[in-house]
Design a protein around this nucleic acid. Structure first.
Length: 464
RNA sequence: GUGGCCGUAGCUCAGUUGGCAGAGCACCUGGUUGUGGUCCAGGACGUCGCGGGUUCGAGUCCCGUCGGUCACCCCA
């Protein structure tokens, strides 16, 4: 038996690679269409980068990395169980680091996206692997003068809140636009929206201590997965949260959570709701007060895309302190990430993944021209013609079969879905056949054949 | 880390109370003297995940082990 790939990784054969290409291309197109610029960073980072602010859970799931070059290093890794580096489990710390390093010279706001591989050392299961692709879309900074970004006095507070709402909405609309382009509808997926800053205010109102807020968020996050409200209550006690008001709020009957009494959701979310309506994507959005997300660094808006029966398709939020934490200027930022695993399952289930042939064609796998020799002693001519066609920019192939049976060779050409076949009759003449149209011309001089091949190939741009 | 289910050809899977290891798809060759997705004939492909045990005989029964998968924990 040949060795199998490591757990939680995937081998991609041509069709699967085409499937992945379909997804990453859709990500790219949507991002660029929405004015985001592509960036990328290293696939491994100093492990400390993730210790700063990622949240407790993530640290236990890091793939440790080290060079192994010096015995001392190896010994340190053995002793501590930790490497000096870690394969990246998420992008946001890298992004914050990158922005912080060049903040002064970057456009305000900076709109960045990337798509690449990420790694988490978890036990694989449905919708969750150890190596996966993730699409990250972020807006760093605001569209108002930088000196206003973090002013706290009442006069500017409203303008800042509105600017943040605009940036939040840009991210969310980019995400929704992707869902839309792959054929999903608001009936298939929902965007659940909440604001941690608002929830935090309520928590203070309930009498939850400031240092207990992260624990309270974690409890809210676990609420939907908890087996019983009693279990939540005991976990709450265990976390050292005394507030009865919080407990009552946390354990209210399942379903959409009601806000605490005397609070108007519409008033709290008015700025962002206004933006989402202006972008005409409001029908995708549900305000859901139980969404807080697991990451420690979120400070305001949080949202996730969910589909019935799957784990979250995408998730994100506002992280206004992170850039500063990495030595940059105070920079409000917002972003989201989408993994390839869950969205692929969803598209598969909904029948929205294009057919195999369409995928291969979209990936450029369909040959423009297929060259065959009808007679012996034309092998040299086949190679010369192939080379010429390829130099012209065409995807050109030949048969690897030994037979001179033209019927067999045409079958070979059809099997790889070539558009046209050039049948060499002699070193200088050929027939040209259009496979889809069953149309053939020739025999003719090679120059003419190449010209027709180019003509017919150029028509592919207009094909459905 | 814990638990359920599953391991037979490259893929999807049959395989009877224990009795010669199979089908479809895919792949290769041919249907000879030049026109395609169909068709026909043939071929290659297996340590039945691996190791042990029971038995005259094990893909089948028992034990162990490895791998996959789903769920728990956790959730970026």
């Amino acid at each position: 038996m040949p060795p199998s790939p490591p757990p939680g990784t995937r081998d991609l054969y041509p069709l699967e690679a085409a499937r992945r290409r379909f997804l990453t291309e859709a990500w790219r197109r949507v991002s660029i269409r929405h004015g985001f610029e592509e960036v990328d960073g290293p696939t491994f980072e100093h492990a400390d980068l993730y210790a700063v602010k990622s949240g407790e859970g993530i640290l236990g799931e890091l793939f440790q990395a080290f060079s192994g070059k010096s015995p001392e290093e190896v010994e340190r890794v053995k002793q501590s169980g930790r490497g000096p580096y870690a394969l990246r489990p998420e992008f946001t710390p890298t992004l914050a680091r990158m922005y912080a390093a060049r903040a002064a010279s970057l456009p305000k706001p900076a709109k960045w996206f990337m798509a690449g591989p990420f790694f988490r050392a978890e036990r694989p299961q449905r919708g969750r692997l150890r190596e996966f692709l993730q699409w990250n879309v972020d807006v760093l900074g605001l569209d108002i003068p930088q000196e206003m970004w973090n002013v706290k006095h009442a006069a500017s507070r409203e303008a800042v809140a509105e600017a943040k709402a605009r940036m939040d909405a840009e991210c969310i609309s980019c995400c929704v636009a992707f869902l839309e382009t792959v054929g999903l509808t608001p009936a298939d997926v929902r965007v659940r929206l909440n604001d941690r800053a608002i929830v935090e205010n309520w928590l203070h109102g309930f009498g939850v201590e400031r240092d207990r807020v992260p624990s309270a968020f974690a409890l809210l996050d676990q609420r939907e997965r908890a087996s019983s409200m009693g279990e939540l209550a005991s976990r709450s006690k265990a976390a050292g949260i005394e507030s009865e008001a919080f407990l009552a709020y946390l354990t209210q009957p399942t379903g959409t959570m009601a806000p605490p009494s005397g609070v108007s959701i519409d008033a709290e979310f008015s700025a962002l709701r206004g933006q989402l309506e202006a972008l005409s994507i409001a029908e995708w959005i549900d305000v859901d007060l139980s969404i807080v997300r697991g990451l420690a660094y979120y400070t305001g808006t949080v949202f996730e895309v969910i589909a019935l029966g799957e784990r979250a398709v995408a998730g994100g939020g506002r992280y206004d302190n992170l850039v500063e934490l990495f030595g940059g200027p105070p920079t409000p930022a917002v972003g989201f990430a989408m993994g390839d695993v869950v969205i692929s399952l969803l598209l598969q289930d909904k029948g929205l993944m294009p057919k195999d042939e369409e995928l291969m064609e979209a990936a450029g796998a369909r040959p423009d021209a297929f060259v065959i020799a009808a007679k012996d002693d034309l092998d040299g001519a086949v190679l010369a013609l192939l080379s010429r066609l390829r130099r012209e920019g065409l995807h050109a192939r030949r048969s690897y079969k030994a037979t001179r049976n033209v019927g067999k060779l045409l079958k070979d050409a059809a099997a790889v879905r070539a558009r046209i076949v050039i049948i060499l009759e002699s070193p200088t003449t050929a027939n040209v056949k259009h496979l889809d149209r069953a149309e053939q011309q020739g025999p003719m001089p090679l120059d003419e054949a190449v010209e027709i091949a180019q003509q017919w190939t150029a028509e592919r741009i207009g094909e459905p």
